[in-house]
């Protein structure tokens, strides 16, 4: 796996503190702090990441602790931020770029597609770009227009990028450490709706940092398997709980990484039930779910008792906040889909 951990292992880890209630935002902040402490080449950069600590406070305190050369308030220009980060990575640094919001990462798209994703390939491996692009994404926070996009499909369609998204406090820390330590560019998508989700947690030992590219089974089930990621993971777990009333025992797979895509874990979980629903917030047409459903069908056809269904956002521009609840896949819509998995023919 590309997520080698040289940066992570560079310094002996302090003894782990006892677990305490921690938000995903705090875990991400801790991951950045620990990565910067472990490896001088890690530089954080973006809009408002310095003095303010980022609009979501993910970079809180880093400029004070590591100096403004290591946690830099850049000019307000996303292509410039990512473009200069490319140059910094060419020189041997490990930039961690913050895009302020999903929809404001689009100006950087050309740098991402034409350079970030290709530099290793273009140079026959001579110039890998170890950089991390953090993008808060998704809706459900009452954001006005341009603050709630789920843009992962654009990135996962671009060979050369890893695309990762955590759903738990523990993974937020571990996957971000793994992303920063990776020698490949990682688009690290942070479900902003989960920034304030809490768990009892303390920073992992470096050995526990999960490799990028492994899905995790959050819940085993016998009736059907929900395959999901990021902000939809808690929704699916809630749906699985509610499904018990209907007599369904649902499994939930959290992909954690869209690229690389862990086909083995997904296929095994789906084979165990013979039924699958793929759930995500972004629009369904041409979305990650289409790829996942196709791969499940290719790998598990003879184990399937029903077509693979998708529950996704509608194929509409992201709605205004007062209407967004109709767009977001919720428990009912997921259970409706499970109900349509041709049970009578089973």
């Amino acid at each position: 796996m590309s997520a080698a951990t040289p940066g992570v292992a560079a310094r002996p880890a302090p003894a782990p503190a006892p677990p305490k209630p921690t938000t995903m935002a705090q875990a991400l902040n801790q991951a950045l702090r620990d990565a910067m402490a472990a490896d001088r080449s890690v530089h954080v950069m973006g809009e408002d990441v310095g003095t303010l600590g980022g609009v979501f406070r993910i970079t809180d305190g880093l400029a004070a602790e590591f100096g403004e050369d290591r946690c830099t308030d850049t000019p307000l220009a996303e292509a410039g931020i990512l473009g200069t980060a490319v140059g910094m990575a060419m020189y041997g640094l490990r930039p961690v770029v913050e895009m302020q919001f999903d929809a404001f990462a689009y100006p950087a798209f050309e740098q991402l597609v034409s350079h970030v994703a290709r530099m290793r390939n273009r140079t026959r491996g001579a110039l890998p770009l170890p950089l991390t692009i953090r993008i808060p994404f998704g809706g459900g926070i009452g954001g006005v227009e341009h603050h709630s996009d789920s843009s992962e499909a654009y990135y996962l369609h671009t060979p050369g990028l890893h695309v990762v998204t955590p759903a738990t406090v523990e993974d937020a820390y571990g996957l971000l450490r793994a992303a920063i330590a990776s020698d490949d560019p990682v688009v690290f998508m942070e479900p902003k709706r989960l920034y304030w989700s809490k768990a009892d947690w303390s920073a992992q030992e470096p050995a526990q940092v999960p490799p990028i590219g492994r899905a995790v089974v959050r819940r085993t089930g016998r009736s059907a398997t929900l395959v999901t990621y990021g902000p939809s993971v808690p929704v699916c777990l809630e749906a699985a709980e509610a499904a018990k009333e209907e007599g369904w025992d649902l499994g939930v797979v959290d992909l954690r990484s869209l690229v690389p895509f862990d086909e083995e874990t997904v296929a095994a979980a789906v084979r165990a039930t013979g039924r699958a629903v793929v759930v995500h917030e972004s629009s369904g047409f041409g979305g990650a779910g289409a790829e996942i459903a196709a791969r499940i069908t290719e790998r598990c056809f003879h184990h399937l008792s029903a077509p693979v269904l998708r529950v996704a956002g509608f194929d509409i521009p992201y709605p205004p906040p007062m209407l967004e609840r109709h767009h977001l896949p919720g428990v009912d819509r997921i259970l409706d889909a499970v109900g349509r998995l041709q049970w009578e023919e089973a």
């Binding site: 530089h43 473009g83 200069t84 140059g87 050309e110 740098q111 350079h115 140079t123």
Partner: peptide, 27 residues
């Protein structure tokens, strides 16, 4: 090899190499 020659790849998308130069010089 760009590192060995200290010559960045020839850039075809116009001007996209300019921020790279800035980032490298800054680094």
């Amino acid at each position: 090899d760009p590192r060995a020659t200290r010559v960045a790849p020839l850039s075809t998308p116009l001007s996209t190499q300019l921020p790279h130069a800035v980032g490298l010089a800054h680094a």
